[in-house]
Amino acid sequence: MGQSLLEALNVRVVGSGEKVLVFAHGFGTDQSAWQRILPFFLRDYRVVLYDLVCAGSVNPDYFDFRRYTTLDSYVDDLLNILDALSVDQCAYVGHSVSAMIGLLASIRRPELFSKLILIGASPRFLNDKDNDYHGGFEMEEIEKVFSAMEANYEAWVNGFAPLAVGADVPAAVREFSRTLFNMRPDISLFVSRTVFNSDFRGVLGLVKVPCSIIQTAKDVSVPVSVASYMKNHLGGRSTVHMLNIEGHLPHLSAPTLLAQELRRALSRK
């Protein structure tokens, strides 16, 4: 079972270091998103890369629409992978949805994670006026986005990618469009619904692992206030690092800067 899972989710282990470092990509990308970050860590870490089951690079048949209705199932996958690789402890770098997956995983198995680095993470994307929470999105907007995705996926991708990348880095936009477009539209839509339906606010306190939250100055998906919200509510010791760049995908648009920040965050105990 372990083997087939490793195969199905394209798990790769690279690097010559001792410490294990997991890179988990976010929505709309696959493990190739880490390509430019990777060289910074190969010397000092054993890096585990894998694809989320929803990624375009994974056989879409593996995506079970009944199973992947909550992020918990993704957490199962992550933990299964780490167990199959006999990882005792690792540092975890998760982008966007994977950041949340990492949080959940660390609640279930705190001993497995020495550190979580969360890039572009948000406990809840939707605004919640009752509780004075600003997630950045209104339900109606999201519904519009969803119907746009349904109507013409390609057009949506072409519109969304530059928006998400934010910074004017054509290569990054191209790369993100490619991976986003690789996702089967129905899966993509389904996962977005899952993500937008998630609400981590109640559980952040259960995370005891130290976290570093990396937030860019301007992110279409995550308002800056969310980073401080996370910091205030996470149960473990956590820090926020602001990157003075724009966009939701710093690993594509500013890999060098992000890599330096990651190294710094990892070296901090």
Binding site: I107, F196, N197
Partner: peptide, 23 residues
């Protein structure tokens, strides 16, 4: 402890949790 991070009612309410067959 069981962290619950998504609600079924949301996903059902928002135009159906499962993708439309057209896709």
């Amino acid at each position: 402890l069981l962290p619950i991070t998504s609600s079924r009612t949301y996903s059902m309410g928002g135009g159906g949790g499962y993708p439309k067959s057209s896709l």
